[in-house]
Design a protein around this nucleic acid. Structure first.
Lengths: 175, 175
DNA sequence: GATATTTGATATGGTCCATAACAATTATCA
DNA sequence: TGATAATTGTTATGGACCATATCAAATATC
């Protein structure tokens, strides 16, 4: 599979509707499009490419809020599950605890969420959203809904969009 | 989003069908399942999780051949487009040329493909599969088809599988 | 109360992705 | 033609993300 974020720069060739274009182009060394072949039917390949495109678009939509997909998911989960500690939030997102520390440091330094020492278990840090964090998350949700997810409807239609999400969830859970 | 490869280790709790289980569990500190909430409807989140699962499965299926998704895609593309150079193969896979070097070093050291100095343009390295590379790719294709892609049919059915691939391709190309 | 476990944290290494720079070669074009 | 620009493969390097081992503090277990 192997798909990086660097999109091929659409080589910007002048439109050319003449026939026999291929041979002429080949003769003068112009770029010949490669055959993807079976690659375009490979689940992993097309899945990875789609994922990169979606993340790319997500980052553009959230540029004003400076939220990555990872950070957005943390804020969403903390909002939905107040009073949980770092281990719980991190593990349900598939983030390893050591790697979650720097991520929280970032969010906390931006005053989006806060760590609170639990009184029950003084080892734990309870996570909560700050007022600013709640406000930012609200704005983020709106941006995602109107600029990001809406694009899927434009592209696939409502019914297909739901079917797609359902199939991906099924793969994520049962594959 | 943020989903790592580390699956939550299915904490292996004994089955417990009693009612009022939640409160009891909470009282004694047993793990409470978190609410994913809107996260499970987020395109990027479910896409990333599905992609990780699929890659994970791919690696298991190809364990005997020691081929990563990236390496498999390179072999496929070289087979389908003989006589192309590194830049062409790398760019259509979205791999940056500097990062492609080590990848080719690996495949070449395992005698799966070879670099040949082009006679037309002595800067270029033409890429070809070795006999061993062709044999390995043939076996790899069979493994992917029977062990990997077949799983999708079992999970979604033929029609849904095709619809899924089509939608993902559309996202990859037009999103 | 001795031992084991959990929590947040640090250190560290691996992989992948991205940019700059370089020598060799080829293309451009004045 | 010859000077300059562009291309190809490559190296070096830094960043982001992922994974493991380890630690001190706090708690659980027996």
């Amino acid at each position: 599979m192997t798909v990086s974020k660097t999109a091929e720069k659409s080589s910007e060739k002048p439109a050319d509707t003449a026939k026999g274009r291929k041979d002429a182009a080949e003769a003068q060394g112009a770029a010949e499009a490669l055959q993807l072949g079976e690659l375009s039917e490979q689940l992993g390949y097309v899945l990875k490419r789609a994922q990169l495109k979606v993340f790319e678009n997500f980052l553009r939509c959230m540029a004003s809020l400076q939220l990555t997909p990872a950070q957005f998911s943390v804020l969403l989960l903390v909002e939905k599950n107040p009073g949980r500690n770092q281990t719980e939030i991190a593990s349900t997102l598939g983030i390893l605890r050591p790697n979650f520390v720097a991520m929280l440091d970032n969010l906390e330094s931006r005053d989006l969420c806060a760590r609170i020492r639990s009184t029950n278990d003084r080892r734990s840090h309870i996570l909560v959203l700050t007022d600013k964090g709640k406000a930012v998350l609200t704005r983020a949700k709106k941006l995602v809904a109107t600029k990001h997810e809406a694009r899927l409807n434009d592209l696939l239609g409502q019914a297909n969009r739901e079917a797609l999400i359902g199939m991906l969830a099924k793969i994520a859970n049962e594959f």
